[in-house]
Simulated scan of single mutants.
Amino acid sequence: MARVSQAHLDARRRQILDGAARCFARNGFHATSMQDVLKEVDLSAGAVYRYFSGKDELITAIAKEVLGEIRAAFEDVTRHSPPPPPDLLIGEVLSRTLRVWSSLNDDGEPVLPRLILQVWGETVRNEELAAVLRDVYATLRESWGWAVEAYQDAGMMPPDIPADHVARTMIATVQGFIAQQALFGAAPVEVLQGGLRALMAVRPPQREA
């Protein structure tokens, strides 16, 4: 009997994950059944269960991939010294993150933001996912805290505000834009970048002499 290559196994696993991601993005985790996934990927139950024991394991695998991509994007961008200005840095992170699974769109709407929103909700009942999310968030705060300190050292940002406060605000900006994409439809990253540039340019009003 011919031995199945690792490349074939990896490709089949990818096929299952991509199909499940489409289903979950379309209908949500709990409204999607394993039968829906089997139909989407056009495989037998035996072929799918060889890789994943059930829907919960599929959800966990997809969530770990999504969160891992986000963490990798943040870490890569914040390696520059000093990093690019916040509007460019956040735009680069979002552009890279939103490209993940972009080829899976089947209705013109972004798949990844919907999945991220569902992952956030799923952590309420799934402690394993909650632990993964906490770990990712801690890593992001550390990476972006370093970026803020680099801004401050370069004189690009006031030094009197704790770096962690700024880091948390930057992360919240990304989270909010992802939520908007999921809830209200796709919007170009340039929208967020332009808004950030405008906010960064705000100055106190000049007093009349």
Rank of each mutant, 00 (worst) to 15 (best):
D160G: 06
A209F: 10
V48H: 02
R3Q: 15
Y151N: 02
T97M: 06
A63T: 03
Y49E: 00
F184V: 00
T139H: 12
L38P: 05
V148G: 11
L94E: 09
Q181G: 07
R3H: 12
Q206R: 15
G194L: 14
R203G: 08
M200E: 15
V191R: 12
E92R: 12
L38E: 07
N105M: 12
W120M: 03
L43K: 07
L88P: 08
G121C: 07
V202Y: 10
A131C: 08
D153Y: 04
R22A: 10
Y51Q: 11
D10S: 13
A73F: 07
L88A: 15
Y49I: 05
E92H: 08
G155Y: 02
R12M: 10
V66C: 13
V100Y: 11
D36W: 01
I70M: 13
R96E: 12
I178E: 04
R26I: 00
D18L: 04
P158V: 13
F24V: 00
R3S: 13
L183A: 11
L117T: 04
D135A: 14
K55E: 05
E128A: 15
L129T: 01
G108S: 11
A20Q: 06
A186T: 00
T123V: 11
R134M: 13
D18I: 06
I178F: 03
S81K: 11
L67R: 00
P83N: 00
Q206D: 10
A186N: 01
A11M: 03
G185T: 07
T97E: 02
L112Q: 01
T123F: 04
K39D: 14
R14M: 05
G195P: 06
A198C: 07
I90C: 10
W146C: 07
I62F: 07
R207K: 14
A167H: 01
Y49K: 10
P188W: 01
A25M: 03
W144S: 05
A61G: 01
R12E: 11
D106C: 12
V124T: 13
T169M: 08
G46S: 14
E149S: 13
F177S: 05
F29Y: 15
S103I: 00
Q175T: 05
A7L: 08
R3P: 05
T97W: 01
I90P: 07
F74D: 04
Q35A: 14
L38F: 13
P162T: 03
Y151M: 05
A182V: 01
D106N: 04
Q118Y: 06
T97P: 00
A73L: 09
V48N: 06
G68S: 09
A31M: 04
F52G: 06
G46Y: 02
A147T: 04
G19D: 03
S95G: 13
G145A: 13
V119L: 08
S44W: 02
C23L: 06
R79A: 09
R96I: 05
G68N: 07
R50Q: 10
Q175P: 01
L117M: 03
A2P: 15
L89T: 09
G155W: 00
A2C: 06
S81M: 03
T123L: 06
V166Q: 02
D87E: 15
P204C: 04
S44D: 09
V93I: 15
D56F: 00
I171V: 14
F29N: 05
R22M: 14
V111P: 08
A131K: 13
D76I: 06
R3F: 10
